[in-house]
Write a protein that binds this DNA or RNA. Sequence first.
DNA 1: CGCCGTACGGTTTTT
DNA 2: CCGTACGGCG
Length: 743
Amino acid sequence: MVATEHILQELNPPQREAVTASAGPLLILAGPGSGKTRVIAHRIAYLVDREGVAPWRILAVTFTNKAAREMRGRVVAHLGDAALDVALGTFHSVCARLLRVEADRIGLPRSFAIYDDADQMALIKRVTEGLNIDPKRFSERAILSTISRAKSELVSPRAFAGSASDYFGELVARSYERYQALLEENSALDFDDLIVKTVEMLREHEAIREKYQERFLHVLVDEFQDTNVAQYQLARILAARHGNICVVGDPDQSIYSWRSADIRNILNFERDFPAARIVLLEQNYRSTQNILDAAHAVISGNQQRKQKSLWTERGGGEPIAVFEAYDETEEAEFIAREIARLLGEDGWAHRDFAVMYRTNAQSRAIEEALMRAGIRYQLVGGTRFYERREVKDVLAYLRLVHNPYDLVGLTRVLNVPGRGIGAKTAQQVERWAQTLGVPVYTALQILVAQESGSQPAGLPDAGRHPVAARQAKAIVEFVGLLDELMGVAAKNNLSTLLDGVLERTGYRRYLFDEFEDAEQRWENVEELRNVAADYDGLAPGNGLVSFLEDVALISDADTIADEGEAPSEGRVTLITLHSAKGLEYRAVFIIAMEEGVLPHVRSFDDPGQMEEERRLCYVGMTRAKERLYLLRAFRRYAMGSSQHNPPSRFLRDIPPQLIAQQSAVTEASERRYQAPAPRIDARPPVPEDAVFSGGEKVRHPRFGEGIVVACVVANGDQELTIAFKGEAGIKRLLLSLAPLERM
DNA sequence: CGCCGTACGGTTTTT
DNA sequence: CCGTACGGCG
């Protein structure tokens, strides 16, 4: 508690202002590395410690669950266990909790399922099928993303239909309505619904609204530039009673507009709260001046932005290293070598390094190189654990036990492991359910009743089911299996339930019968069981609910190993630029600085999206504390074939004097592609006849025949990277010293 | 009706 | 290169 005073001493004046601003709306515009996480944590501590606010009356919303955990850790460090009562989480997790608590009062099934991207896709497929929409003319993904955008802007199906002006709009309007109906039938909410339903709840139920408005004396929102309209409205409603809303963001780091994040929220905030106090945090505590200058040069290319001054006391630092490799293998090998080299120096640990890329698929080459070099790494995201088939199967059973109306889960495992209920039968049942106007699970129950010759109370009187005898028998068994598992769930902890699922379905045997890589898959199932065991302390029903909720709302950034691992245990981080937001590393490698990758080809025809690519690059660059490496490859393999990408426009925006060594890998080949990249002026002359270029065959007296894969011009010499055919492998040689012969 | 083989198409980012 | 869609066989 006494800590507060000396904490305030450590802060610079704007930070102190942000922490101690007493009441009312507050907008903090924070540059990268300005210590904003620290400031929010301090502010929470300050409110409790100095202003006497009860911790449970503070709501702080972060972007990822990991950020929430980190925030909680910081606040607990200041306040002790009292801080555990602060309401902390992502918008989605906070909403899920509120909806679960209020479910009965607002007529929402308490056991609603949460649908992720893949589940939504499965649902929208049914919608377009039902509406006879040709997926070749109108992609399901486009329809879904239009629906999602409407929901993030709090546009109801009815309102959307009213404003639809073209044919596509009509189709989406019809799909939207049907999609929502289907979600309801499944007792499911998608990610957007979590927010939308919460806003609706607060708008329509006065008692509930007043309860929470009264409770939350202070509302704080981090990463405000990445909130969508619905999320902003939610924060506004919650803060309306007391008017204490503090939002923190950086327009230059807005990288989620494709997920309907709306940068205009920042402008609207100033409009909605004219009395808002605005604090600028412009001092950077993270990066060296060179890194900051380079990043600034890149972000300055955006037209739509407010100029901002960023400064640091950290001095010049190392120049930015730009490396041009022959292909992605060499790019990766350069990184592995550089990391190995720095690890050999004093004070560097694995966790000091991160390799960042635009798309998940790019991690592959890096992984291979690090593996070959024996460098430990952790891959963030990629083929995510919870997206693996075997994990999804087991989860689907758990979801069904929790909510048997979940049609997506049901169709997933109806015939997994195979029990003779094929697609045809599933379709028959679904059609039948539709004509009866009941959920598929209810139809299955009726079928079971009919098979046993009875008609239990509470189920609609229906015509005879359309399923053939053999398949009907299999369905009876399947429904029996679910019943049995629900019985297990009611009385046992989560891992017992999961064991029950595996045992009764014979899932292990199924894996080993059907898959080559069954070992690996079974390991994943066991890993899932380990996670589930963490919930065994909870009451039977609660364990399952919390587990499913956490699984649905977990993000890949949440899986990053926390600090606290022994230094020797650290790992190099491989991460997408998007996921890297909010993180920092001593050394950062950004790969594939190429036109078409970063900026991504999909942004070429839209200036707005191009600006977002630039911000993405800026986010990546500003993750670096001490060293920043920007890499590109002359050729890159993607989807089987090789392609050539010109250097990224963002590279050209960086002043040459900030760049250490301009590596020139494939000059000769490069010229053929007329790449106009600016070169460092003071490049020392190299004797013309001595210049080797990529692809040339050479002979070395000791290493034998090889191919030049890269050459770097430096200090009047050339450093050649040569792949030799024999034992020697890949070597780096100086032109002036190596007795090389052109072949 | 279900299962297994081959051809083809589509590929950003994620709470 | 990977997963899905379709066609023939048991």
